[in-house]
Structures are given as structure tokens and as C-alpha cells.
């Protein structure tokens, strides 16, 4: 009988201890983000979509067609082609297969001119997989308007 009373007391005490925690959480700070209406402030370093920003001074791409990003990509999802010779060398194709991309950021790291950057954008779901191959126009459109320095390695104090 006494053992039963002890066990009953333990059960009530355990229940009370647990409920005390949940009630504390009930009156505490709200944690939920109402996603489609409210959005989390994504950190500036977030590995989101890739984009090709346009140089504001010259109005052309920053890419110097060195193929480093294509070579370093572990998933081989970047495809670059260029036409012309010497100073007239132009990008004719810059495709990124965003469905294969693993958002590792190695292309951003090796780019010598910061021509390829991450933008903090993530809402890219689609009905058709073919839409996930981003060509030059898509990547230019995805670039942010204001200049950003994302490819800078090891800069102290970057946000």
C-alpha cells in the first residue's frame, strides 16, 4: 500500500514538473514565424541562389571566362561557353543546373572577380524540372541591384 502511494506521488510530481515547463513556454516569447506572411531574416552569408551581378561601371558581366568555377564545381553543374577572341571575348552560355547544385559555395570562393555570388533567396520550387536550369538571363535577373561583396575570402567583420 505504501509503495503504491509512493508511486502515485511520484507520478503526480513528475506530471507537475513537466507541466510547469510547458506552462512557462506557453506564456513565454512566441517562436513561430508565420511564414508566407512573415519571413525570417536570412543571414547575408546564406548559401541561396547563385547569381551573376552586372558591373555597375561598365554595364557588362564581371566574368572573365576563366572557367575556374566550372572546374571546381563538385557536381559539374556549371556550363560555360565563350565566343570571340582577345578583347571581344564574350560569354555566350552560362548555365547553372540548380537541381544538381549542392550550394557548397566553392565556385563563389574561387572566382577571382566576384562575378558569381550567392543571393539570399530560396523560394525556387517549380512544377517542371526543366525550369531549374538557369541560363545567363535568369542569373543576371537574380542578381541584386546594389553591389555586394560576397566572394571576399576571410574579411574580418563581414556581416
Amino acid at each position: 500500500m505504501e509503495a503504491l502511494a509512493t508511486r502515485a506521488w511520484e507520478a503526480v510530481a513528475g506530471l507537475y514538473a513537466g507541466l510547469r515547463v510547458t506552462f512557462r513556454a506557453l506564456v513565454g516569447r512566441k517562436n513561430t514565424v508565420m511564414y508566407p506572411l512573415q519571413k525570417v531574416n536570412v543571414a547575408p552569408r546564406w548559401h541561396g541562389l547563385l547569381a551573376l551581378p552586372v558591373d555597375p561601371e561598365t554595364g557588362s558581366d564581371k566574368c572573365i571566362i576563366c572557367f575556374q568555377c566550372e572546374r571546381v564545381c563538385p557536381d559539374r553543374c556549371i556550363h560555360i561557353e565563350a565566343g570571340g577572341k582577345g578583347k571581344d571575348r564574350l560569354l555566350t552560355r552560362f548555365d547553372i543546373e540548380m537541381d544538381k547544385c549542392c550550394y557548397c559555395g566553392l565556385c563563389v570562393e574561387v572566382c577571382p572577380t566576384e562575378a558569381i555570388v550567392f543571393v539570399p533567396h530560396y523560394e525556387t520550387s517549380t512544377y517542371n524540372r526543366a525550369n531549374l536550369v538557369y541560363d545567363l538571363d535568369d542569373l543576371r535577373r537574380a542578381a541584386p541591384k546594389e553591389p555586394i561583396a560576397h566572394g571576399v575570402v576571410a574579411m574580418r567583420g563581414r556581416p
Binding site: Y35, P36, K39, V40, M98, D99, C101, C102, Y103, C104, Y122, E123, T124, S125, T126, Y127, N128, R129, L132
Partner: peptide, 25 residues
């Protein structure tokens, strides 16, 4: 497949957006 959500891995918001796309469909 009806909706593709790219990302490696996608943020939870991206999954929610994919579900919203499915609801539209």
C-alpha cells in the same frame, strides 16, 4: 513528381513554399 523543391537541403520555408505551390495546383 508534381513539385520540385531544389536546395541542398532546402530551408523549411522552401518546403512550405513547395506545399503552397502544390495547393495552387
Amino acid at each position: 513528381v508534381d513539385v520540385y523543391v531544389p536546395g541542398c537541403p532546402p530551408r523549411p520555408e522552401a518546403l512550405i513554399e513547395g506545399l503552397l505551390k502544390l495547393q495552387e495546383k
